[in-house]
Amino acid sequence: MTADRGRQRRTGEAREEILGRLETAYRAAGEGGGPAGRIAYALEPGRDPEMLLAVARERFESQEIGYHILPGFQSLVDSVANHLYSRQARLVALQPCGLFDRLDLRHGLARRLPDLRFVDAGSGLTDVARADVGITACEAVIAQTGTIVLSATKREELGVSLLGGVHFCIATVDQLTADLDSWLAGRPGWAPDEATVLISGPSRTADIEKTVVIGVHGPWKLSLFLVKE
């Protein structure tokens, strides 16, 4: 308690001193700066779904994101199960979400792949880290940068898209949006009280001789299942 009070006093003094210096310099310099405007891109897909999809596909390919465009939810569970099978996945972490409950994804996968095991809901990070594949839904898909937008309130949920070697993400075509700016513009006053992660490819590094290596601390494979329904 004494240490906490000491720290609070010191940080309080520092705060006043720093803000005081800024205030003094600000008075000397006065107001400045105008409105910032918006960054424009050479290729603007607008809101046309076909254009959005075309731009997004090009981005996914250049950013090593596997994508599978599916006609409807009917084929989704089959497709996910096939990919899990081909990757010889034994343990899967599912992000808790309404979409997966509605699709009854867990039972659908379990019926198709009887040997498949799931990390229990409410498990700790160490359990999530043991999963071969993490499966999540997403908030949006940004075409301009080939980005998947995820959100989570708990660290364990965040771990689903991070700790396994492979990340499967499920989205619908109507979640495609042109760019981050327009996605934010569609959410006036949005103040996320959950963590939002923008994912634009499997984890990578180019620290050694600028040679790109896919798969470092995060997943080495990212696959997006994009449902047209």
């Binding site: 960054i39 700016d181 009280d193 992660v197 634009s200």
Partner: peptide, 30 residues
């Protein structure tokens, strides 16, 4: 968002980095 459009392009020549985390003001439970 405006800065995120120019930062990775200028830094590593990527249109976006693999991960951008937008952490909420409230710490995670635990």
């Amino acid at each position: 968002a405006a800065l995120l459009a120019v930062l990775p392009r200028s830094a590593t020549g990527q249109r976006a980095t693999c991960y951008v985390s937008i952490l909420p003001p409230r710490p995670f439970p635990g």
